[in-house]
Design a binder for these strands. Structure first.
Lengths: 215, 215
DNA sequence: ATTACATTACTGACCGGTCAGTCATTAATT
DNA sequence: AATTAATGACTGACCGGTCAGTAATGTAAT
């Protein structure tokens, strides 16, 4: 006769579901507490298994870290690539759409914590940092570069220095994410991202100076 | 007769010099390895003393952290205040001067590592984060706010949303510092800061769009 | 000068808590 | 009965923090 209260056995065997559940738990905790401060016991508990089980699926804490980064961030960049190839408006509108979409996809998820996580831990995990640089940063910069070059070629944008402009454009986006997951006493990121994003795009396209251009 | 090889005794008593030397060592190591990953044994060794001595001057690792932040960053903000009160050019020139001077004072020092350090550790040390927010972030934002308001009042700047504009302006500066001390495989921050800074100020003042303004 | 005593900056072995990683055992599935 | 997913007690390294002891310096009496 089964237990009449609960049909869930104490121990379940769910080989297929474990890795994804462990990755989700790890993302949550890494993003919330940082990598070093997160205990694998807690990750396992969060995923409803014991620490031993975690080690059945991931060889070490660092491997788990790598897997979290990979699985979390690559789909977002795939979306970006797709948008770029399909969009057919002018470059200014494309830039605006891209930045807004990025915020929708990442800003509202726990994925938003990944940039801060990488910045914090890159120094101590060069292998992960290398992967992140090649597969996330370079691809992200590539997206913005394509937009800038399209805009400059069409005459819509001024012929700014593309390489540094990319960084200048991405920085406010990154900082907004970073501040969300750090310096919580700071309200910097608290005012609605709408306004922030609008100001960013407005400044970016129009600059700070009034009507007649000098320089 | 003294030792002819070396006049340095094995053990020295230098009560006055210790704190500053320990703070310098701690800044170096915290910035290089992160707070959690830095061992107090190493900090002490770097300063040429034993761990016990460190505890004569600082009550705990966290107190040492706070002292490093305070001692490192406050003088820079004092300089900023002074510049603001003395400068008498137009707001655009003031903004440019302020950003460039900031880079000179901080970008070339180990102080440049402090923003990344704070971002990484703020979550685990709320007391330090609170201090940093009140005494560094708010003061820094105050400087930029003053410049923006001066420029808008004089009619030189467009009437942008000041609060979010502050963040948009500061973000590229911060990101440049952050990338210097993180993601070292990434060359993002490697190209000379000159170009980066010039692009930032140029974009900030003039925007991305060509001559005739829309909107 | 030299000796004796007092003060205190400094040391480093040690302790206790923590946590990544292991493995003998248990129990679900085939 | 055999296989293997899952467990959780255990280990050993690590490190923040402590403290009994050591040696450098000061001071005063001889």
């Amino acid at each position: 006769m089964k237990n009449t209260i609960s049909e869930v056995p104490a121990r379940q065997r769910r080989k297929e579901a474990r890795p994804a559940e462990l990755l989700a738990a790890a993302l949550d905790l890494f993003v919330e507490r940082g990598f070093a401060a997160t205990k694998l016991d807690d990750v396992a508990a969060h995923a409803g298994v014991s620490k031993g089980t975690l080690y059945l699926y991931f060889a070490s804490k660092e491997e788990l870290f790598k897997a979290v980064i990979q699985q979390g961030i690559l789909p977002v960049l795939d979306q970006g690539d797709e948008m770029l190839s399909q969009f057919d408006g002018d470059a200014g509108a494309l830039l605006e759409t891209l930045l807004k979409r990025f915020w929708e996809l990442v800003g509202s998820t726990h994925l938003a914590g990944i940039p801060k996580l990488m910045i914090s831990e890159a120094g101590n995990f060069p292998e992960v940092a290398q992967y992140y640089y090649e597969n996330v940063i370079l691809r992200g910069r590539g997206l913005i570069r394509a937009v800038l070059e399209r805009g400059i070629a069409s005459g819509q944008f001024r012929a700014v220095d593309v390489d540094s402009a990319i960084d200048v454009i991405l920085a406010p986006q990154m900082m907004l994410l970073i501040l969300r997951y750090s310096l919580t006493p700071c309200n910097c990121g608290k005012q609605d991202p709408e306004t922030y994003l609008r100001t960013h795009i407005d400044l970016l396209l129009n600059g700070l100076l009034v009507a007649e251009k000098k320089k």
